[in-house]
């Protein structure tokens, strides 16, 4: 008998701990496509930590959805299988499993401060390579790009310095190396 590591056998995806996964989905850009994906997650009780969507291949009418989710190995396998059987979905890739990838998120952070705090906020922004995209005499709007941890750290630092508003895009991600998403 072949040993269980042989290719035809299921890799045991069962791990007790929840792990974060970034999943890229190519989907027909048609009404209801996003609702199908989101409805699948809520209906089956899966987590969505972030979700971004935009048309990426205009000529083919395809949108790319990047979902950050978490779950046990068994749940992540289910999520991918469930996504795959939605009719308008062309491909599902688990960027966390399929080799290294680059993840980026953009945030805009509004800080209201004067005096020493204003100077400090500008100094930290500089350290984080955040840019001021709007300024008044008492406020800045910083734009910062990076992975989610970097954004979290920046936001934490801005809180005591007068953070009044912020928005984040959610994660977009792409595999490293020459290979395209559906190749």
């Amino acid at each position: 008998m072949k040993d269980l590591s042989d290719g035809v056998y299921a890799q045991n995806p069962y791990t007790e701990e929840d792990k974060k996964h970034t999943i890229s989905v190519l989907v027909d850009n048609e009404p209801g496509a996003l609702a199908r994906v989101v409805g699948l997650f809520t209906g089956r009780g899966y987590n969505i930590e972030s979700l971004t969507v935009a048309e990426t291949r205009h000529r083919q009418g395809l949108s790319r959805i990047t979902i950050v989710t978490s779950g046990t190995g068994m749940i992540i396998e289910q999520i991918k299988a469930q996504l795959n059987r939605l009719v308008p979905i062309h491909s599902v890739s688990d960027l966390t499993m399929e080799g290294p990838s680059v993840e980026r998120e953009l945030a805009m952070v509004k800080v209201v401060a004067t005096g020493e705090k204003r100077v400090e906020s500008l100094r930290i922004a500089d350290n984080f390579r955040a840019r001021a995209v709007d300024s008044t005499l008492e406020s800045f709007v910083f734009e910062i790009v990076g992975n989610s941890c970097k954004l979290d750290a920046f936001i934490e630092l801005m809180k005591p310095l007068g953070l009044v508003d912020l928005c984040r895009t959610g994660v977009v991600a792409i595999a490293r190396g020459p290979k395209g998403l559906d190749e």
Binding site: L4, Y9, A10, Y14, E77, Q78, N84, R85
Partner: peptide, 15 residues
Amino acid sequence: IDLSSINKSVMVDLP
């Protein structure tokens, strides 16, 4: 025929 039936509730060895 449905991949989502595999390992949904019971772990199988050979799908």
